[in-house]
Amino acid sequence: MTALRLTWLLLHKDLRIAARSREVLGFMLLFALLCVVVFAFGFLREGRAAEEQVPGVLWVTLLFTGTVGLLRLFAAEEEAGTLDLVSRTHAGTAPLFWSKALLQLAFSGVVTCFLLPVVLVFFDARLHGTGWILLSLALGLIGQAVLGTLAAALLVQVRLREALLPLVLYPLLAPLLLGGVKVTALAMGQSPQQAIDGWLELMVAFDAVVVVLSPWLFGRAIV
């Protein structure tokens, strides 16, 4: 059985669990909606349109919602006590890592598809430069899912991990968050292409570092 096939099997299992209970994804969607509502209370004055707040609200909501998903990412293995078993395949720990990262990516992808129209409607904004915004969202979600999977895995057996996950994750995700907010704001403001390119390069570099380092550290720390 190749590593790729193992990854797919593990992902398939998680997707089936998710399809059966729909708990985690449902809570993530609900939480995203609540975030946007709370941000609207915080930022909107007399219900006026506030397009300039859209990038920040969008990315911070994605960050918070991603955290909610990450806290439950290893719940099934943890409750059954099988984390040791699934991480010790003959293909190493990589299949487990990538199946979890892809699961988180799938969840946050669904959340984004729901979130983007909600934010645009609630903040009365219009989307410009949609292609660039979607590209930055894709890069941001990949980086967040991969690094987040590592952080969640590190914290699986640690006390107080609900409090620790943001502490570990948010400062490290700062470049991605800055890049995402900047690209979204620049694209919506129809800024020149060069400005957007620089930030996209940064996000690609971040993703590259994270994709290389995270599985390695996962293998080192978990077994």
Partner: peptide
């Protein structure tokens, strides 16, 4: 990476 990002 944070250094580069905050510089920009």
């Amino acid at each position: 990476l944070i250094h580069i990002a905050v510089q920009k």
